[in-house]
Computed example of a mutant assay.
Amino acid sequence: MKPNFWLYCILFSLLLSSCITNKDVVYLQEKGTIASDSLQIRELSKPYRVQVNDILYINVKALDEELVNIFNPVSQENTNQNQGGNSGLYFNGFTVDMHGDIKFPILGKLQVLGYTVQEIEAKVKEELLKQYFKETAQIFVTVKMAGLRYSTVGEISAGVHTLFQDRVNIIDAIANAGDIKVTGDRTDVLVIRQYPDGQKIHHIDLTDITAMKSPYYYIQPNDIIMVKPLKRKALGAGETASQTITTVASIFSVLVSTYFLVKNL
């Protein structure tokens, strides 16, 4: 009975350590890190500041529509038609160059690096009034990011994605990419973020509800979301108990066959 006993112990241990549980795959769990009588979390989201290679959509309106056509290379109609691929904005939008400038009609180069879209709106309006329009023109300037572009790699559907929203949290971004695979490690998702001085890697535990308080819960343009595999996958274990039993049984069968083959030689 001893060999069988130890075999059962080994099998049971493998099942406990190899199976992927609910704790591995459920998002935003309450892990005792906040008061149990309240699940209200204060989200941290700072205004995004424009960086090099960002593409801006800028629209100018005034009482005389003909006067503002030169400032609007991308019409609202073309913008709506290109929401699937963002190609119109790529060719006709305003790209922030390596010096942090955009080339704007009539006004020439405008420094926008490190500005929020609200600050760019105010700056463009100020320059238009100074160089081209009068106060009576009643101009109105709208500045938006030309889609929030991000990438996903690892244990998630890999690809480059664009969402036409001002704010996108990491859960929305992952859902848009098709969700993390069962074998993905949700406890340590990497967010690779671009900064003026280079890129930095940040970590966020998406199985903990306090992730909503993280400064990386809301993604930014050009973020890379990287999902590592669980150690169970790296070890080749199954995703479920039945898969693990099948794997162990197969290994055991091979070992037994090898043992008797060698013994009979």
Rank of each mutant, 00 (worst) to 15 (best):
A237Q: 04
V254G: 06
K109F: 11
N22G: 08
V153I: 15
V254F: 09
E65G: 01
K181L: 14
Q40E: 14
N169T: 08
G198A: 06
S45T: 03
E66I: 13
G178F: 07
L230N: 10
V52G: 02
E155N: 05
L15A: 11
I102V: 14
C9F: 13
A237W: 15
I102A: 03
G32S: 02
E119P: 13
K134H: 05
Q138I: 00
F94C: 04
S257Q: 07
N78D: 15
Y217V: 03
L163F: 04
Y115K: 11
R186D: 04
P221R: 04
K109E: 11
S250V: 12
D37S: 12
Q138P: 05
T183C: 01
T152L: 02
Q220C: 01
M212C: 03
K134T: 14
L255T: 12
E119Y: 07
Q76V: 12
P229W: 00
A211Q: 08
I20W: 09
R49T: 15
L110S: 04
N59R: 14
R42H: 11
K228C: 01
G236N: 03
Y195W: 10
P73H: 01
G100Q: 09
A158E: 13
G84T: 10
S13N: 11
C19Y: 11
Q76I: 12
T95D: 04
K144W: 06
F252N: 06
A249I: 05
P105D: 11
E121P: 02
G114R: 01
Y217P: 11
L67C: 05
V112P: 07
T95R: 14
P3E: 03
F164Q: 05
K2Q: 12
L28S: 09
T21K: 09
A137N: 15
Q51I: 08
R49S: 08
Q243P: 07
H202Y: 14
Q131C: 02
V168G: 00
Y150D: 05
G236W: 01
I209F: 07
K46D: 13
F91Q: 11
G238P: 13
L190K: 14
G159K: 01
L230Y: 00
E239T: 12
L230T: 14
V168F: 03
S157G: 08
F5M: 04
R49Q: 13
V254P: 05
L113N: 09
A175E: 12
D101C: 05
I224K: 06
M226V: 03
N53I: 02
K2L: 13
D64N: 13
I156V: 14
S17T: 13
F71Y: 15
E66Q: 12
G88L: 05
K23H: 07
D64G: 03
K181E: 15
A35V: 07
E119C: 06
